[in-house]
Design a binder for these strands. Sequence first.
DNA 1: AAATATACATTGGTTTCTTATGCATTTGTG
DNA 2: CACAAATGCATAAGAAACCAATGTATATTT
Lengths: 119, 119
Amino acid sequence: MIYSSELIKGTLKTIVLKLLADNKKMYGYEITQKVKELTGDKIQITEGALYPSLHALEHEGLLTTETEFIGKRVRKYYSLSPTGKVKTKEKVSELSDFMDTMKALLNVDTANPAVTTIK
Amino acid sequence: MIYSSELIKGTLKTIVLKLLADNKKMYGYEITQKVKELTGDKIQITEGALYPSLHALEHEGLLTTETEFIGKRVRKYYSLSPTGKVKTKEKVSELSDFMDTMKALLNVDTANPAVTTIK
DNA sequence: AAATATACATTGGTTTCTTATGCATTTGTG
DNA sequence: CACAAATGCATAAGAAACCAATGTATATTT
């Protein structure tokens, strides 16, 4: 099972930033594989989504890059800039909070808000 | 605090369906208020997003409508169709599962997948 | 040798939402 | 009582974010 693609919207950049926070440096293809691996194939990041996203993050100043050659093949590593590290914490925490709120929404019987003070 | 708007993307229809599953019938404005209430103002559904979404769900055959007059003001109630009920269960369960997967992604140290078999 | 995996990238199109606008009625407040 | 705010519907133009497809090239597996 793979999640319908609209769910990933809005979460991609945060996922990428989080991976880079844990792994120092990664290249595009590696990121797609890592996400597949970590989610048991449930989340597949397409290249058409990833590369533009990486480029955007770089232009925003959150990522820095270094190119490496493996034989004749290029490999472009991305790392978090200092700003990127700060921003990553913010975005990860926001997304995490959002997930909690959504989980609460989906699990509660919304007909009766009860004393369900969602934090 | 309000979540940055891109996070809501892809989840709106599911939220609406879930609310209708619990509350039999609701009208548009009521839905926006309910979501605000249930999420402590963290999620604000704009009308420009909601109404087109409701219309789409109706055209997809998931919702039925009945119009009521409160004084001179129109109120349009939406309810789940039989198909809608089935679809709602699917979508709620998918989104819930997705939230779990995302939470796991964000909380784990992705540098070391460990024995973290994400269910 | 051929298929698959690795590795980058762009382009056109769609979906989904935001912002803004518009209209009308009802309720609350100074 | 006048005005603001809330209630309630709706649409339209534009932006954002992604997908599917395509392109190029090298490396590895069968």
